[in-house]
Design a binder for these strands. Sequence first.
DNA 1: CGGGGGGTTGATGAGTGTCAATACCTGTGG
DNA 2: CCACAGGTATTGACACTCATCAACCCCCCG
Lengths: 246, 246
Amino acid sequence: MNSFVSTYKKSVNNLENISCKHCALYRICLPKEASECELYALDNIIDRQHNLKRNTWLFNEGDPFKAIYAIKSGCIKTYRLTPKGKEQVCGFYLPGDIIALDAIETGIHTCSAKIIQATHVCAIPYKKFETLSQAMPGLQQQLVRIMSREIASQQWFVTLLGKKSAEERVAAILCNLSDRLEVRGYSPNELILGMSRHDLGDYLGLAIETISRVLGRFHQDGLLTAKGKHIQLHQPDQLRALAGYS
Amino acid sequence: MNSFVSTYKKSVNNLENISCKHCALYRICLPKEASECELYALDNIIDRQHNLKRNTWLFNEGDPFKAIYAIKSGCIKTYRLTPKGKEQVCGFYLPGDIIALDAIETGIHTCSAKIIQATHVCAIPYKKFETLSQAMPGLQQQLVRIMSREIASQQWFVTLLGKKSAEERVAAILCNLSDRLEVRGYSPNELILGMSRHDLGDYLGLAIETISRVLGRFHQDGLLTAKGKHIQLHQPDQLRALAGYS
DNA sequence: CGGGGGGTTGATGAGTGTCAATACCTGTGG
DNA sequence: CCACAGGTATTGACACTCATCAACCCCCCG
């Protein structure tokens, strides 16, 4: 059972051997139409892994780069450790997202990826992908688009960290998750967070106590109901306004 | 006269019509060896603009995306406006850097690019580039590498904003600029900043007064000499340690 | 039933932002 | 050449947000 939302999609249950063409995440994963043969070729090099358990790592900072990963289900956080041993979460990645793009140039992972909810991923061995895309430039155009999207979303995040108050940050991440879940076919107002308060704090640059307090205040103001990881948004528009849009 | 460093390189003076092959920034701009014909093809589509004046814009948030830009000289900041009208600087870009990568997917610029020191850029029309790379996949591999580098460097920046104190932030950006200037052949310890304290503050998520105070403290401690935009690093190693590495 | 991790709540203080006054540069026009 | 104006940087006093520390609760799991 996917833990993000109550209305779980049956179609994503048997994940291991679905081809890209028939994958429910097709629209999210690949930004523009891909040709039949591109999809077929991609299918052939994809290494379908399964069942990554909670609290395990997909890769670690410093590991050699082998593949990029498409998430089929679950939730992964990427993070970097500061010299003092604190972790800065760089992103929460949901089904359809692609990670490890930061490692392509150096060949070394610059962040760690930890499974925070039972997850399935497709591994796309990068060497094979590069070879393949010599013949199929369309494939690499897809990759460029995905990377562009990642850069734009990091800019959004940078603005959040640089300029927003604690309330705005919490509101913003809730709206952001809501939007992303909606695109994936889930209810936008019934979130079941995949991450702990601790993770949220390490993402937003706030202490867990602050997260807790802000959520409490939102709760009191009738904006939402927060019970542990279950969050119901009652006034999403007002939350969005508070976030300074999402 | 380039304003970043006192030891200005003569070779970059006549910038307008130099081909990529002979450009002094070749090694920085293109992450891996490019073939003769790739370079030649690239040269042919590049639109060489010149003489962008200080305090003008290369593009603005919301503008339609036409081209990516390689900086030949000068300094550009990219930024996004918050709903309250404050600006979050997303990055300072130096000669050899490439900007507008965030706009490829949506076709709309997600940030503004302002010239903060007289600048020369090469514009690479993206449509033409895409067409060209159908025939030359190596070109697009270059782009992927550049984008990967950008993503990794944004992760560094996110860690700075999320986890570091004012002192660490200022130390970190100084070390970062020092490193980047050194790669470009300038002295690493004699910085002439292209950006104002205001820009620095809007980048680091700090008030200008805080920047000023931190620099003052560093000055007192003998780490550096700061006189307006001229900054001499006296103890770069200690600064680096303070930054929690760069 | 008991233990432990995760979450909440309260009191306090440190680190920065804000506001205001002042000094400093830079370019402009007389 | 100097005087002036406008932007830019510095310095000080104060306020406020948020981190820290500590106690407690809740709930899940063994």
